[in-house]
Amino acid sequence: MDAFSRSWAALRAAVAELPDEDFARPSGCAGWLVRDLVCHLIIDAQDVLITLVTPAGTEPTRDAVTYWDIAEKPPTGDDPLDALIVRLAAAYEEPWLLKFHLDDVGSAAGRAAELADPALRVATRDVVLTADDYLRAYVLEWTLHHLDLIAHLPDAADPPAEGLSGARELLEKIAGAAFPPSFSDKDALLVGTGRRAPSEAEKSELGELAAKLPLVLG
């Protein structure tokens, strides 16, 4: 719960601190500008709110690791839902409106997470998992999108160290293997999810794990 709150608060603060001109810069998500990514975060916050008030009456079918589906190819931005995000973001017209909506809905999602019973079973995407596992999965989501947000913003702050290490640990469990100790948490996440191509030296260090990468999470 604490890791979720810290990673989410840091991501929202990073958005709040962006100057208007940065909203028109590319993000780390293919086909999306920073404004598009922020619009996606608003929808993510809505999903968190919906999920935490959708209790399930059955046993969990997934946990924080198996919550993630692995796609065969990285997103290109051409998916209909991805294209919808671009249109929605453009409809905001002014960056302050995106900031306001994210702060409004995002704060509510953060409070809902703090109030949630970790053992509560919740339903989302036709699966059931505990609130604790759901929120732990979202630490990975927030951390990766924080990296996406600052991909072309060299002066922006990195995600919290706790979020980076927790996200790396979860990604290693998804991969079924650990990244080399020489990889920083940030590099493990970027390379592991295909956000950055590994160098030849890194490929050599990755060994058999290189064949499993990138892990395209969905």
Rank of each mutant, 00 (worst) to 15 (best):
F4L: 08
S7P: 00
A9L: 08
A14I: 00
L18Q: 00
D20C: 02
D20Q: 04
G28M: 05
R35M: 12
R35F: 07
I43R: 14
D44P: 01
I50W: 13
T51D: 02
L52N: 06
V53P: 00
P55G: 02
P60Q: 04
T61H: 08
T61N: 06
D63L: 15
V65E: 09
Y67L: 07
A71S: 12
E72N: 15
E72W: 06
T76F: 15
P80V: 10
L84R: 15
L84P: 03
E93T: 07
E94L: 05
W96S: 11
K99T: 00
G110N: 04
A112L: 12
A112K: 11
P118W: 04
T124Q: 10
D126N: 15
D126H: 12
D133M: 03
E141Q: 15
W142V: 00
T143V: 12
D148P: 05
I150M: 06
L153H: 15
L153T: 10
P154Q: 14
P154S: 14
P159M: 08
S165G: 02
R168I: 09
L171G: 04
A175Q: 06
A177F: 05
F179A: 11
S182W: 05
S184K: 07
D187E: 15
T193A: 08
R196N: 13
A197Y: 07
E200V: 14
E202W: 11
E205L: 10
E208P: 08
A211N: 13
K212R: 15
L213S: 06
P214V: 13
P214L: 12
L215K: 03
L215G: 03
V216D: 00
